[in-house]
Amino acid sequence: MENFTPITGLIGGLLIGCAAVLTLWASGRIAGISGILSGLLFPHKTDTGWRALFIGGILIGAACFAWFNGGVTIEIQTSPGLTVIAGLLVGFGTRLGSGCTSGHGICGIGRLSRRSFTATATFMFVAIVTVYLTRHVLGGNL
């Protein structure tokens, strides 16, 4: 567990929790990124501004961290072809399944939704199996 970073993980989780609580308390909305983002793709006149502000906030929040931290580490080992396939699956799947890690995992479980418990257990399990297959069975030959 040499990569385990419990303190920053917990602080980051609490910040995300604050964001979800602020969103529901102030606006009555669910802070689900896939839902908020997909609404921007085919915009409605009165339903675009708040989505753009939220997504803009995410970008500025991450940029602020990168600025103060002197950069941000990301490591990507996935080939471009697989990256495109993964992106398509994440985009299509989160719409078909009505949410992602934030909408189902943080907000849906937060309001004790059975659908969100089910979705979160499903995508966690499938992702763990996928990583096992790609990393240990196919041996990173993808």
């Binding site: 983002l37 990256t83 398509l88 799947g93 989160t94 934030s102 979160t120 499903t122 992702a127």
Partner: peptide, 24 residues
């Protein structure tokens, strides 16, 4: 719900990105 969460799970497992972190 199950099919969508499963497809998302495959994509998440391949790339390690879900929508929020990918945007950030």
């Amino acid at each position: 719900l199950i099919a969508g969460a499963s497809l998302f799970g495959v994509g998440w497992g391949i790339a390690g990105f879900c929508p929020g972190p990918a945007l950030a």
